[in-house]
């Protein structure tokens, strides 16, 4: 009875979470120009259009470039802070951590207006660096959380032992700390990468003109209504998301990386 209830609950939730994905994927294989669901004349024609259109492909690749660079920059900000908190319990680092958390939780519409004004005020407008930096700062709370977890999972006894055996700080860093924290750094990178792909409004406001990422291109295409080609991009992002997180799960221990304990 309880088991049946649990299965029903999980099943309904799974359908709930999967439904929009099914809709988006279904529309992308629509044979006609319209956003029909269920798809009429299923065909992959829009995938062909997407991959052969240099404008869509350049928007797609730009999204990827921005996402990768934003992830790297974001981790470059998070790592020193997490290290400073763990090793030195630095108050400054804790303040920066709070600042990072606040940035993440601010309404994105407010943030994007503010960023627009900011970049205009310093006269550095419409450039790809603006988008990358803006994304990196907004999402930095996530790698901060995961890398912080990574540092906290380091068993102090290991470090004690290493020191007793004569290891220098740099050795300890390299041989003890780095292997333990590295998977958490990777999962932090993946989080920022995935979120940066789909969040459009910041990029739109900051550099929507010269740097046309995929979500922005989707919006620019709204003049003539939604089109199935938009959903092709969405499906590709979805597949990327599944692939990225599956890779993390395959290489690392996903439950552990998310802060849980590993169950084997």
């Amino acid at each position: 009875m309880k088991a049946a209830g649990k299965i029903l609950f999980l099943g309904l939730l799974a359908i709930f979470m999967a439904a929009p994905l099914v809709v988006v994927a279904g529309v992308s294989i629509n044979g006609t120009q319209r956003m029909n669901f269920p798809p009429q004349d299923p065909s992959f024609v829009w995938y062909g259009t997407f991959f052969s259109d240099p404008a869509w492909m350049s928007a797609f690749s730009l999204s990827l470039i921005v996402a990768v660079l934003a992830a790297l920059v974001s981790v470059s900000i998070a790592l020193p802070i997490a290290y400073a908190i763990w090793k030195y319990k630095s108050r400054l680092a804790l303040i920066l951590e709070s600042l990072a958390r606040i940035s993440f939780l601010l309404p994105s519409i407010v943030l994007s207006i503010v960023f627009l004004v900011f970049w205009s005020a310093i006269g550095h407008v419409g450039r790809i660096e603006d988008t990358i930096l803006s994304h990196a700062v907004v999402f930095v709370a996530l790698p901060l959380a995961t890398i912080g977890m990574g540092f906290r999972s380091v068993d102090m006894a290991l470090i004690e032992v290493a020191r007793t055996m004569g290891a220098r700080e740099s050795d300890v860093l390299r041989t003890v700390i780095r292997p333990i924290v590295l998977p958490y750094i990777v999962s932090g990178l993946v989080f920022v990468f995935i979120l940066s792909l789909n969040v459009y409004i910041i990029a739109y406001m900051v550099a929507g003109f010269e740097v046309e990422t995929l979500p922005i291109k989707v919006f620019n295409n709204l003049r003539m209504g939604f089109q199935p080609t938009m959903c092709v991009g969405a499906v590709l992002f979805m597949l990327l998301g599944v692939f990225a997180f599956s890779a993390v799960a395959a290489i690392g221990d996903l439950p552990k990386l998310l802060g849980g304990v590993s169950r084997r």
Binding site: A55, L116, S120, G123, V125, G126, Y204, M205, A207, G208, F209, E210, E212, I216, K217, F219, N220, R223
Partner: peptide, 23 residues
């Protein structure tokens, strides 16, 4: 070139025009 719709288009254009390199 594709032009985005929205208020920020003119903001950005004004700034880049002032900087001497309109898109």
């Amino acid at each position: 070139i594709e032009q985005p719709e929205g208020a920020q288009f003119l903001f950005q254009l004004a700034a880049s025009n002032k900087a001497g390199s309109p898109p």
